[in-house]
Nucleic acid binder design. Structure first.
Ligand SMILES: [Zn+2]
Ligand SMILES: [Zn+2]
Ligand SMILES: [Zn+2]
Ligand SMILES: [Zn+2]
Lengths: 153, 153
DNA sequence: TGATTGATTGATACTAAATCTCAATACTTT
DNA sequence: AAAGTATTGAGATTTAGTATCAATCAATCA
């Protein structure tokens, strides 16, 4: 497996995204460091404007344009995923390139990446009945994480 | 089953949403009629601004505010669903109250509602390993519908 | 080292989506 | 008819996100 779940810690994400930037021929500048640091430290999914607000207090880090640019790049490269959202702004969560799903805790907001996927097997009969040729899917899971259940219930 | 798929035609959706408005104590005004008519006739998912653009040519139907208000109500009541979208604006598809999924054709854009759902069974072992208590999920399917495959390929 | 080159930044202007406001209007009930 | 309530819509406003472009920075080369 390319990215065993045990390795998918925020710290590892932080190192891997920096390496990915370099591999893509992009520079690891000070503004980009600050953004990656903030994302790696985020306890829950976040919006671009949250990053803007968090970093604008730290004088001289990253402008709105730089933040939006890097978020777009990270998303396109698979290091962030945009969550399904009722709201008007995009919500991002740390991610890993490839096919994964996210389990979001409704209590603490933490997002866990799940690499296993058996969705298409289960839904195959229904799709066959519709004569629909499946090419991809989006799946997000909502519930309560073990940590929240043991600590506050 | 509350809404057998065979009954989920646009015409039926049109009648049922009008009844739902009445049941909720809301009035079936002329502007709302025009919006429901347009949505019932839509061949594919659409944005609020598409409705605005389509109806503003018909002089004297529905203002932007009325359109946004009704779309919000229909979505909250389960008669529209917002699709996962990379873009900036929400994309809506006709829906039915309850738990369903959408299969969107990447070629013609048509959206088919699927009432069957065996997602949670398949993913249960992986979630148990994470000690995650599942409460809900969002699943959208992408592919090519039978109609598109037979007619243009 | 200093020059060259091209990537990167960020202030600012801009666009477009979505919401808000509130007086005017249209129903419904008594 | 009068009173009371729901609805509308024009326009102002907010806000997310994009575009611009001169100034700056960093990597490589002479
Ligand atoms: Zn939690
Ligand atoms: Zn999957
Ligand atoms: Zn199709
Ligand atoms: Zn389901």
């Amino acid at each position: 497996m390319a990215h065993p779940e045990s390795d998918q810690t925020p710290a590892h994400w932080r190192r891997r995204t920096e390496a990915a930037l370099r591999d893509a021929g992009l520079r690891c500048t000070f503004p980009r460091h600050a953004i990656l640091d903030w994302i790696a430290a985020a306890a829950a999914p976040f919006t671009a404007e949250q990053v803007v607000a968090a970093l604008e207090t730290q004088h001289g880090t990253s402008s709105r344009a730089t933040i939006y640019r890097l978020l777009d790049w990270l998303q396109a490269a698979g290091w962030l995923t945009r969550l399904y959202s009722d709201g008007t702004q995009h919500t991002y969560a740390r991610f890993w390139p490839g096919h994964h799903h996210i389990a979001v805790c409704l209590r603490c907001g933490s997002a866990t990446i799940m690499s296993e996927c058996h969705i298409e097997e289960g839904i195959r009969p229904a799709l066959a009945a519709l004569d629909f040729e499946l090419q991809g899917h989006v799946l997000e899971l909502y519930g309560v994480c073990g940590n929240c259940r043991t600590h506050s219930n």
